[in-house]
């Protein structure tokens, strides 16, 4: 296989803040690489240094040690305009430019490519249209920013960053405050952009499930000073790195579902008989109320799911007797009274 050189790379990078007395080091000894065409998700608990890392990689903040190299050049030595041609950002801060429309916003992305007057060449206009269409917001072009929903506004901001046309796009929590469908859409669009336009896209996010679903690679910044992990999401799940990175008392990472679940003490064993989606959702409900599934048919508590014409019934067998519930809510209530 041909060796691909990274779009952006750093070795032994220390990030943090310069101070007169003593530098505040947030992270040290980071080795990292970003390749074109990949969607990278940066994850880590609050306060782990995600924003500092993003700012350093974007060239907004100077590293305390080491260098961030893009195409053979340290990005902190690049002129500001040159850097803007290579790296574009989507930040968390809210815009307050009400009178601006989507077209004007996206066209601003061409800023580092236009002359002093800022007028757009036909090629610039083509780029702006392409960015609008890539994000499926062509019909919003004439809308004012204040008329947009949060999801539409975020797509417009991404289109602006795309029109800036750097090899690297850095997004800080682009899916925060969005509903589920918008979150899925935005991650899917970012993935497609990485693939089709061969961009390197780095996204800081707290959405574990979304990241596991869509990222080509994950970067994990655990809470402790030490340790920075990079790899394919599935590998990080299987080798336990993900579980370790987010380790907090009260929760554990469930390998099979890829989710963090609440640890419940004093589990009561229950034998469950039944199949399909009804079984899945019954398990979820039982787990939440502190029941653990047992494979032993002779468990004192047992439940049998029966399905008839898409209506479900739950038969509960307990030492005290037998009951039938026609909803999970009713089942849980009966179980609680058995305790």
């Amino acid at each position: 296989m041909k060796k691909v050189s990274p779009t952006l790379q750093a070795q032994q990078l220390s990030i943090g803040y310069r101070n007169k007395k003593a530098d505040k080091i947030v992270r040290a000894g980071l080795d990292l690489e970003v390749y074109q065409g990949e969607l990278l998700c940066l994850m880590g608990p609050n306060g782990a240094g995600k924003s500092t890392l993003l700012r350093t990689l974007a060239g907004v903040q100077e590293p305390l040690a080491g260098q961030v190299i893009m195409e053979g050049q340290p990005i902190h030595q690049l002129a500001q305009q040159e850097r803007a041609r290579r790296i574009s950002l989507v930040l968390t801060e809210q815009l307050s430019a009400g009178n601006m429309n989507v077209l004007e916003l996206v066209a601003l992305g061409r800023y580092p490519h236009t002359g002093w007057g800022g007028s757009l060449s036909p090629a610039d206009k083509e780029m702006v249209l392409q960015a609008l269409n890539d994000l499926d917001i062509g019909e919003l072009a004439g809308r004012k920013l204040y008329e947009l929903s949060d999801g539409q506004r975020q797509k417009a901001m991404i289109a602006r960053a795309l029109a800036q046309d750097g090899q690297l796009m850095i997004l800080d929590e682009p899916t925060a405050h969005l509903d589920l469908i918008n979150r899925l859409q935005i991650m899917r669009q970012l993935r497609l952009l990485a693939l089709r336009r061969q961009k390197a896209i780095l996204v800081a996010t707290h959405e574990l499930e979304l990241a596991l679903q869509s990222a080509d690679r994950l970067w994990l910044l655990p809470q402790e000073q030490e340790g920075f992990l990079a790899g394919m999401p599935e590998d990080l799940v299987l080798n336990g790195s993900l579980a370790k990175a987010f380790n907090r008392s009260g929760f554990h990472f469930d390998l099979s579902s890829g989710r963090f679940v609440e640890e419940v003490e004093h589990c009561v064993p229950v034998y469950l008989e039944g199949e399909g989606p009804a079984r899945h959702w019954t398990e979820k409900a039982l787990q939440r109320y502190g029941y653990a599934l047992s494979h032993d048919k002779s468990t004192p508590l047992s439940i049998r799911i029966t399905a008839e014409h898409e209506s479900y019934h739950w038969q509960l067998f307990a030492p005290e007797g037998e009951k039938v519930a026609d909803s999970l809510e009713a089942l849980v209530k009966s179980l609680m009274t058995e305790r």
Binding site: V60, Q81, S88, E93, G109, Q164
Partner: peptide
Amino acid sequence: GERYAESMG
């Protein structure tokens, strides 16, 4: 905003 402006060069 200033931070976006800076990021655009």
